[in-house]
Design a protein around this nucleic acid. Structure first.
Length: 434
RNA sequence: GCCGGGGUAGGGUAGGUGGUUAUCCUACGGGACUGUGGAUCCCGCGACUCGGGUUCGAAUCUCGGCCCCGGCCCCA
């Protein structure tokens, strides 16, 4: 009976792991360039952290359990709640703004599907205590920077503002759950459902028309004047729109103008307050969204003071999938640059010695550990893609030499044992291999 | 939870209207080959997802489970 990997989980082998590592490092580098510092929170938390944020119903989709002490715990299904908790526990009185980023796996009990797994990774950040159009713009610019640096094509960054829709609904006396219902339908692009719900809620025909027009507003800067015309009578919506304009100005100052304004983004949750944005990659099927974020008031949900924060996260697995689908070149380093092969058993120890010398000068080196025949060893070195093999034989050693073989050309040369590390280092540097 | 398509050596595959020993590539072990023959050739190793049913006989037909792929629902 073979033991299987749990449903919806994956094993990552060498090559894939190198690719993931590369992408991870690119993201880390960029987040740090923008001044973010890494944090790490536990893989499991109190179950109530998540039910407080998202409601009891969420338990359906969470791996939760009782530990031996009777504590109700859950594998984290997302990272924004743990980060908010961390802020409350440790950072409330730290100088603002706080810029933090995280990378870690999350767990959801869901039906696995394209781009959807039961264990998946999120790479994201949180900017606490600096709510302003400028800080939102900086985050979006950083997200765009990541996308560019990774070489992701066919990406769209959609930016919206929930304040506009919410203000119009509020004016009609639609709040709370009702408002969320409307936002949910808008997010789903369910126009028919929306129309009938607006009718049930007895929304005035003027507001109704505004809403229906607004959610179709998708485009660049030029649509803003139409929006303004549409909502100018609603003070709060107008304010939100001005906020959005301010954000876009900042975003352009940060050097990014390839955005799409999309007032139909709703992100159903009520703790989102203003700016929201999502990144889509076409050609990813049902799970085309690789990233989402915005400004929210999550700290308050957990009983902290009112501090707004802005954050977003990349669905790391979806980023990988998009790169793979687009056949992006992900640099994958060779396992080792040099292989040390004793020609016969009698030079095995000398081979170990030489291998170690190379390693000490920073050359990634493998040495034969199997005692196989030379032919097999060379074949193995070839499979590994090594650039050079050092052949260590008794005959050469008598003159204090070893043979360095270039695996690409087959060319060989004799080198003094004492010089071999330095010589190879030079060769590798010259050819740009290290 | 629902709908559709799948599951054959470690990896990639052929076979599928039931009938000798299940195909090929690769990887791995050995040999031709005692110090450079990473080539070639030969030999070996190794698989029908699991369980029930139909049948003289099932990888093949059928039912169910598990898992994978795609879609619906959901998506914090």
């Amino acid at each position: 009976m073979e033991i299987q990997r749990p449903r919806g989980t994956r094993d990552f082998l060498f090559k894939e792991m190198k690719e993931r590592k590369y992408v991870e490092n690119v993201l880390r580098r960029i987040f740090e360039i923008y001044g973010y510092s890494e944090i790490k929170t536990p893989i499991f938390e109190e179950l109530s952290l998540f039910t407080t944020k998202s409601g009891e119903g969420i338990k359906e989709q969470i791996y939760h359990f009782q530990d031996k002490g009777g504590r109700n715990l859950a594998l984290r299904p997302e990272l924004t709640a743990p980060v908010a908790r961390l802020y409350l526990n440790e950072l409330q009185k730290s100088p603002k703004p706080i810029k933090m980023y995280y990378f870690g796996s999350c767990f959801r009990y869901e039906r696995p599907q394209a781009g959807r797994f039961r264990q998946f990774w999120q790479f994201g950040c949180e900017l606490v205590g600096a709510k302003s159009p400028g800080s939102e713009a900086e985050i979006i610019a950083m997200a765009a920077h990541c996308v560019e640096e990774l070489g992701l094509d066919d990406c769209e960054i959609h930016i919206g503002n929930l304040g506009i829709l919410r203000s119009i609904l509020a004016d009609e006396g639609v709040f709370g759950e009702k408002q969320d219902q409307v936002m949910g339908l808008i997010d789903k692009r369910d126009v028919e459902g929306l129309k009938s719900l607006l009718k049930d809620l007895q929304i005035g025909s003027k507001s109704r028309n505004i809403l229906l027009k607004l959610i179709d507003m998708v485009g660049h800067r030029e649509i803003l004047s139409d929006v303004e015309e549409l909502i100018k009578d609603n003070e709060n919506a107008y304010k939100a729109l001005k906020e959005l304009e301010e954000l876009l100005k900042s975003l352009e100052a940060f050097g990014f103008s390839d955005y799409i304004i999309n007032l139909g983004i709703a992100r159903g949750l009520d703790y989102y307050t203003g700016t929201v944005f999502e990144i889509y990659v076409h050609g990813l099927g049902a799970q085309k969204q690789i990233s989402g974020g915005g400004t929210y008031n999550l700290i308050q949900v957990f009983g902290g003071e009112k501090v707004e924060s802005t954050g977003f996260a990349f669905g790391f697995d979806r980023v990988m999938e998009a790169l793979k689908k687009q056949k992006a070149k992900i640099p994958v380093a060779k396992t080792v640059d040099v292989f040390v092969a004793p020609i016969k058993e009698d030079t095995k120890l000398k081979a170990f010695e030489i291998a170690q010398k190379l390693r000490k000068v920073g050359i990634s080196t493998d040495v034969d550990l199997t005692g196989r025949k030379l032919k097999k060893v060379l074949s193995h070195a070839d499979n590994l893609g090594t650039s050079y093999v050092i052949l260590v034989g008794a005959r050469d050693l008598k003159d204090g030499k070893v043979t360095v073989k270039n695996m690409k050309t087959g060319a060989q040369e004799m080198v003094d044992v004492d010089d071999v590390a330095a010589e190879l280092k030079n060769k590798l540097l010259q050819t740009g291999m290290i």
